[in-house]
């Protein structure tokens, strides 16, 4: 009983951490895209940084999907 409660609490805390991390990745990716737009002039450099920003966003989305799934595949 205690073990299952601890595990559940651990899962919830880990899930919260994952969710926070996922949103941090999303916002960071967007900030990189905006930074590339504001600070870089060359189209190649801009394109490369924007691609990196979008890759970070996709990573963030993947983390968010993972963090919203409970062990049984259940979305929460």
């Amino acid at each position: 009983m205690v073990l299952s409660r601890t595990l559940r609490h651990g899962f919830a805390a880990g899930s919260m951490l994952l969710k926070t991390g996922g949103f941090f990745f999303l916002l960071s990716g967007w900030a990189i895209v905006l930074g590339a737009l504001a600070l870089l002039g060359s189209p190649a450099a801009r394109g490369a940084f924007m691609a990196a920003g979008m890759a970070l966003e996709i990573g963030g989305l993947a983390i968010l999907v993972r963090s919203h799934r409970a062990p049984g595949g259940r979305s929460r």
Partner: peptide, 19 residues
């Protein structure tokens, strides 16, 4: 640069609107 402009909009949707 049109494609890049579209990608900036998409990045804003995923990176700002979703959070």
């Amino acid at each position: 640069g049109q494609m890049l402009a579209q990608l900036v909009g998409i990045a804003t949707l995923i990176g700002f609107v979703l959070p």
